[in-house]
Design a binder for these strands. Structure first.
Length: 412
DNA sequence: CTGCCCTTTCCTGGTT
DNA sequence: CAACCAGGAAAGGGCA
């Protein structure tokens, strides 16, 4: 059976927006002031990290995940990216770059999705595979996690659903010294970029936030530069070279954020997950335990819930229509007043749906079959054949669907 | 354990 | 011919 739901294996080469060509000069300027952007690339078999330690990128292989230090986590993620043919720059590696193996294990799948909406489920599954042979480790971690939760005061603030690492973990001596450097640099980059780009390009708050994320992303994923062709140990000095003026990486990513292209879905569903609270707190921990305990009769791990609140197909599509990353590149409104929308990239939508459901075999054929079951429930209704709309890939929300007409309310 | 719900998977046949 | 649409049937899997 052909695996039509397979993941992309090649990095899309995105053209740069001319308006962003100022970026290399900007970075060049920054490198002059901070002196960290341009450093010679080393061919040494180990990567020197800022504290001058050398780290073997294969070390994680001979250690249990529970023993992984932050560098092992990064190495492991690079290995995952390599094995799955995922361009490293598509992974939000910086969101994981300051976590130890213990912290990683304590995270729910949703935490992974929060950090990387596209590859989070895959990364999560890869970790679970690693852990599958030794569930006692997870029990131990969960016990510790729960104890931390009971003892510590609330760490989280505001609506963010980002994973709240217990303070005891945050204080771990293995915390990466790279991260503060990223934050500092990205902050100044963000500030300068906003000043520069706003001359010609209006940035919405969301876009601005995406820009910030992209900058962090670019900085951190540069960790992996040179690894896209293999997992041979590399010099971490290319963290800086990755942002050298000649590098198209930053500009390409910025361009993709400023005008989401069909190929850019790396931030997809951030809106959807950001407003969901059922994964937090005890529920979140329960999902961690569930993912460990619930097994099929054949011993294989079960797929994650298909019925989690907010995880219905029509809600997924509704949210995609609200997300500037997916709308209009993947789905778009034909008539937001009437609830008529069009699927622009059918297979891409199916892939995203499959990722949401942790099902790599999802296809548009199957997604559309599920869509057709909605006609009976009046979640979808037949599109009026007025000639106003395309004949294919067009659907219309019905009276049983809710929440989509906020678009209409905004327009009125 | 059971029944319901929401898909998922497979299929045949039709349409664009 | 590929892509899409329509809908039957059966099964998977979560949840109350």
């Amino acid at each position: 059976m052909p695996n039509t739901g397979s993941r992309p294996t090649t990095a899309p080469v995105l053209p740069l927006y001319p308006g962003l060509m100022c970026l290399p000069a900007l970075l060049n300027k920054l490198s002059g002031s901070q002196g960290i952007l341009r450093q010679p690339m080393s061919t040494a078999p180990y990567k020197p990290i800022p504290n001058n330690e050398k780290v073997d990128l294969a070390r994680f292989r001979v250690k249990d995940p529970v023993e992984w230090l932050v560098d092992d986590v990064v190495s492991w993620m690079l290995d995952v990216a390599k094995r799955h043919g995922i361009p490293f720059e598509e992974m939000n590696m910086h969101k994981f770059a300051n976590l130890t193996g213990q912290q990683l294990i304590a995270m729910s799948e949703q935490n992974f999705v929060d950090r990387d909406p596209i590859w989070g489920p895959l990364i999560y599954n890869e970790l679970r595979k690693n852990l599958a042979e030794d569930t006692s480790v997870i029990d131990e971690i969960m016990k510790k996690y729960n104890a931390d939760e009971d003892n510590a005061t609330t760490v989280s603030a505001g609506p963010s659903t980002s994973y709240d690492i217990p303070k005891t973990h945050l204080a771990a001596p293995t915390a990466s010294p790279i991260v503060p450097q990223f934050q500092s640099l990205s902050q100044s980059l963000n500030h300068t970029l906003n000043q520069t780009l706003n001359h010609g390009i209006q940035l919405s708050p969301n876009l601005s936030q995406n820009l910030q994320q992209t900058l962090n992303h670019s900085l951190a994923t540069s960790l992996a530069a040179g690894l896209s062709t293999g997992l041979s140990p590399v010099n971490l000095g290319i963290v800086h070279n990755g942002l050298s003026p000649g590098s198209p990486l930053v500009g390409a990513q910025l361009q993709s954020k400023i005008s989401p292209l069909p190929s850019d879905m790396t931030s997809y569903s951030t809106n959807a997950v950001a407003t969901r609270s059922e994964f937090e707190g005890s529920e979140e921990r329960r999902s961690i335990v569930d993912s460990k305990i619930r097994k099929c009769k054949d011993g294989k791990a079960r797929k994650r819930s298909q019925h989690t609140k907010g995880n219905k197909l029509w809600e997924f599509i509704r949210d995609a229509l609200k997300n500037p990353i997916t709308c209009p590149s993947v789905v778009r409104w034909e008539d937001p007043i009437e609830g008529v929308f069009r699927i622009v990239e059918s297979e891409k939508l199916a892939r995203l749906w499959g990722e949401r459901k942790n099902n790599t075999k999802m296809t548009y054929e199957k997604l559309s079959r599920a869509m057709r079951t909605y006609y009976e429930k009046q979640i979808l209704v037949p599109v009026p054949k007025t000639g106003l709309y395309p004949k294919k890939l067009v659907y219309k929300f019905g009276p049983s669907a809710h929440g989509w007409d906020s678009v209409k309310e905004e327009l009125l």
